[in-house]
Simulated assay, not measured.
Amino acid sequence: MSLAISPQARDALEGWIAAAAALRGNAPATLSAYRGDVVEFIAFMTAHRAEPQGLAALSRIEVRDMRAWLAGLRSGGVGSRSVARKLSAVKAFYRWLAEREGFEPTAVLTTRAPRFQKKLPRPMTEDAAREMIGTVETQADGWIAARDAAVVTLLYGCGLRMSEALGLTGASVPLAEALRIVGKGGKERVVPVLPVARTAVDRYVALCPFDLGAEDPLFRGARGGPLNARLVRKATERARLQLGLPSSATPHAFRHSFATHLLASGGDLRAIQDLLGHASLSTTQAYTSVDGAHLMRVYEDTHPKAR
């Protein structure tokens, strides 16, 4: 599809990607997805309008062109969630391009994404989370078992993303009472570390046969290289099958469970937002699924007018 893009449009696209990487700190996988979405859009417009899509042509995109693109995606079997993601990438590119080239991007920016039902995360129960951690440790022997248990304990005990846990270096140990984590977009946050998490990591460090230098990855694969997230996912998959848990019991479910169980214990939603590193409170709300009866009990126990 890249052959359908003019050199000027390709240069503009790479300029936008470079700007997004520098200013927003997007992960390489995210930037790759953005690039692919915009390439597909420009390629479609090249065929749809039967002309090369240079910068001048891109500035003349109309509402009917956008409708044709969306219709083409849907007829091609692209789901509403994916369509919304692609449209978001195209809009971000157009905002940057319009400011740089000085044209009016209204036709693109006013295009509405199809509605879709947000898929809420499914956290594990507290008992299931504890059983999963214990069972993960039985999926291997020696230091590898201790390693896997340490990783999932950090996911649940600190609400870390997998990439954040695997991004820790030898300089992090021994773990302090709090960790400074650099999350998505280069955003920093401080998360408290429970004693059980420190103990799990200490046990792994004591058993690990490799030198854990300050600049080296903390969690290692069997041959000493950085631990691949796929191996953690495999260990948790075996554990959930052994326990008879649903397919939603994934490594990322530990993070969902961390947030949900904190809220269920009366935790403040804003504080949980900070712990998770979410830019938007609405994102945190999607991570938490506490039944109305519990929220009512918390309200009655804590609200001044209810006492």
Rank of each mutant, 00 (worst) to 15 (best):
165 A>L: 06
59 S>T: 05
175 L>S: 00
198 R>D: 08
81 R>D: 04
211 D>W: 12
111 T>G: 07
65 D>T: 03
281 L>D: 14
233 R>V: 02
109 L>W: 08
85 R>Y: 05
132 M>G: 00
110 T>H: 13
112 R>K: 15
119 K>M: 13
102 G>T: 04
43 A>P: 03
87 L>H: 03
62 E>F: 02
280 S>Y: 13
217 P>H: 06
33 A>G: 08
201 V>R: 01
117 Q>W: 12
162 M>V: 15
199 T>A: 14
178 A>S: 15
200 A>S: 10
290 V>Y: 04
292 G>V: 07
21 A>Y: 12
282 S>W: 10
168 L>W: 03
130 R>S: 04
244 G>C: 01
100 R>W: 15
269 L>D: 09
201 V>W: 00
176 A>N: 10
135 T>G: 00
197 A>Q: 02
114 P>G: 10
10 R>Q: 14
119 K>G: 15
94 Y>A: 07
7 P>D: 13
224 G>D: 00
142 G>C: 01
237 E>H: 06
120 L>V: 04
289 S>H: 11
140 A>H: 05
62 E>P: 02
63 V>Y: 09
160 L>M: 13
153 T>N: 08
259 A>V: 03
125 T>C: 08
6 S>P: 04
273 Q>E: 07
229 A>I: 00
289 S>W: 05
304 P>Q: 05
248 S>V: 06
